[in-house]
Amino acid sequence: MAHDPQERNPHKTGHGGRAEFRAQVKATRADFERQVQATRAQIDATNERIEARTGRNLILAVLIGLVLGLAMVFSLIFIKELFMVFAVVIVGFTAFELAEALRRAGRNVPRIPVVISAVAVVPAAFYWDATGQWLATLGGITFIALWRLVELLWPSRRVTLREVRKDIGAAFLIEVYVVFLASFAVLLAAQEGGQWWTLAFLLLVISADTGAYAAGLTFGKHPMAPTISPKKTWEGLAGAALVCLVVGVLLAVFMLGQPWWFGLVFGAVILLAATFGDLAESLVKRDLGIKDMSSWLPGHGGFLDRLDSILPSAAAAYALFLIFG
Rank of each mutant, 00 (worst) to 15 (best):
R103S: 13
A145C: 08
P110Q: 03
E163V: 13
A171Y: 07
A182N: 03
V159T: 15
L161G: 15
W154L: 13
L187F: 11
D129K: 01
G140H: 02
L135M: 11
R104C: 07
T160H: 05
G140Y: 05
G140Q: 06
V164L: 15
N108S: 14
A136N: 07
V119I: 06
S156E: 13
F184P: 06
R107V: 04
R111P: 02
A120E: 06
F172K: 00
V119H: 04
V176G: 04
A145D: 01
Y127N: 01
E175V: 06
V109K: 03
A189T: 15
D129T: 00
G140A: 03
F180W: 15
G106I: 07
L135P: 08
I112K: 07
E163Q: 13
V178A: 09
G132M: 04
A120T: 09
L161P: 04
L173E: 04
V176E: 03
R107C: 00
W134S: 06
W154D: 14
I174Y: 09
I112S: 01
G139D: 03
V119G: 06
W147D: 13
V119S: 01
K166A: 10
T137N: 06
G169I: 04
L181H: 08
I174F: 11
V150H: 12
F172N: 10
N108F: 09
T160A: 06
A136E: 10
L181E: 07
T142Y: 09
E163G: 07
A189W: 13
V178G: 04
R111L: 11
R162S: 14
R162E: 12
A182E: 01
T131A: 08
D129F: 08
R158L: 14
I168D: 10
V121P: 01
R162V: 15
Y127S: 04
L138C: 04
N108H: 07
V115Y: 08
S183A: 14
G139P: 09
P110Y: 09
V164A: 12
R158F: 04
F172Q: 11
L138H: 03
A125W: 00
L146K: 07
L188N: 12
A125F: 04
G140L: 05
V179Q: 10
R111Y: 08
V179D: 12
S183M: 06
V179S: 11
R162G: 15
L187T: 10
K166I: 09
T131G: 12
I168C: 11
S156A: 11
R165T: 12
V179E: 11
F180C: 05
S117V: 00
I174K: 08
Y177N: 04
L173N: 09
E175N: 11
R157A: 15
L188T: 14
